[in-house]
């Protein structure tokens, strides 16, 4: 168990600022997700915490101790790589036993600890097999077992689910979360998949261009994005961002519903929505169109759940509404959140 603190951390590759001055502190037992598009510096940040990459500037503290100059093996961490990085010439047993042997753990205790780790992930049957004889999901479990076997104080996971197919990924995500709850080890998890981030993280760090854009619980970053990048990155489809004359206005596609579909009429902002196209996804319908009289030139996507039984005809104008507090305002220049600047006429 350990806390992790990162102070003014910077990594330059030539002229590129891969990580550009990051401050973070991770609590004991926390599941922290680093989320961002590819090239945002999240993997570099993780690799610096692991000690695989040396920072250009700044400090890294694990468990209160500055580890800037410590090699990876002195940092009491375990890492799971995107490719799993299993040792291809060793059996599953030897793969899991490797960190124990490398750290000079007492020989007699190794078999028992390997078996316990394997049992944790249900891979006891495969102990004699080579990694190439395993499926993707099984390999991923071996990688996790190899990571937990020596009881590290910090887990670093670099997109460990991205090589699994979609069905398996949902299952593995659930298992991973339960497992982390059970052992309670501080975990840093890198992903570009917002669904993984929302589902797994106690807190999410949204990154872009080597900088932290927002840190918060999944609900905070989803409901209260601090800038247009976070608003546009999270959610599928993402937040509608409509550029007005003095600010950018945003609201979530699933919060903008037909006026009559809202449970209460209180605090609603009704707007005329002109529908251009309808997409039926089964669980929801996506409506593409524009706000007829307020932002006629900006595209708007609306997600209407299947529970709303209304017919929508392309080309028609309907009365939709969104709760006033669901509307977010962003500065036109900086993209940061600003105070509300109502554009509608109060009724």
């Amino acid at each position: 168990m350990a806390t992790v603190t990162v102070r003014q951390l910077e990594k330059r590759f030539g002229d590129v600022h891969a990580v550009d001055g990051i401050d973070l502190s991770i609590q004991e037992g926390e599941f922290l997700v680093l989320l961002g598009p590819s090239g945002c510096g999240k993997t570099t940040l993780l690799r610096m915490i692991a000690g695989l990459e040396r920072q250009t500037r700044g400090d890294i503290l694990i468990g209160g101790q500055v580890v800037n100059d410590l090699p990876p093996r002195a940092r009491k961490i375990a890492m799971v790589f995107q490719s799993y990085a299993l040792y291809p010439h060793m059996s599953v047993y030897d793969n899991i036993a490797f960190p124990l042997k490398a750290q000079g753990v007492e020989k007699r205790s190794i078999p028992e600890r390997v078996e316990r780790a394997a049992a944790m992930f249900g891979i006891e049957r495969f102990l004699k097999r080579k990694p190439r004889e395993l499926s993707g999901g099984e390999r991923q479990r071996v990688a996790l077992a190899r990571a937990v076997v020596r009881e590290p104080s910090l887990f670093l996971l670099d997109e460990p689910l991205s090589n699994l197919d979609a069905k398996l990924r949902t299952l593995a995500r659930d298992e991973l979360k339960q497992f982390q709850r059970r052992i309670g080890t501080t975990t840093i998890y890198v992903t570009h998949d917002q669904i993984e981030a929302m589902g797994l993280g106690d807190r999410i760090v949204v990154m872009s261009g080597g900088k932290v854009r927002q840190v918060g619980s999944p609900q905070e970053v989803y409901d209260e994005p601090e800038d247009t990048f976070v608003a546009g990155f999270l959610g599928s489809p993402p937040m509608n961002l409509l550029r007005g004359d003095n600010c950018t206005v945003g609201f979530r596609p699933e919060r903008f519903l037909p006026l009559l579909a809202h449970e209460s009429q209180e605090g609603l902002v009704p707007l005329w929505f002109r529908i251009d196209r309808v997409e039926d996804l089964g669980s929801a319908r996506l409506l593409y169109g524009s706000l007829h009289d307020t932002f006629p030139n900006e595209k708007v996507i609306v997600s209407v759940p299947f529970t709303v039984h209304m017919d929508f005809t392309p080309g028609e104008v309907y009365e939709f509404a969104v709760k006033e507090k669901e509307i977010k305002f962003f500065d036109k220049e900086t993209g940061r959140r600003t105070e509300p600047r109502p554009f509608w006429v109060r009724r």
């Binding site: 995107q82 291809p88 490398a102």
Partner: peptide, 21 residues
């Protein structure tokens, strides 16, 4: 693969062990 070398590094293997194993 670089990953495998790095995994061994994180797993705590010494230079000699990384080469031999």
């Amino acid at each position: 693969p670089k990953d495998i070398q790095e995994a061994a590094l994180v797993d705590g293997a010494s230079v000699l062990r990384r080469y031999v194993q």
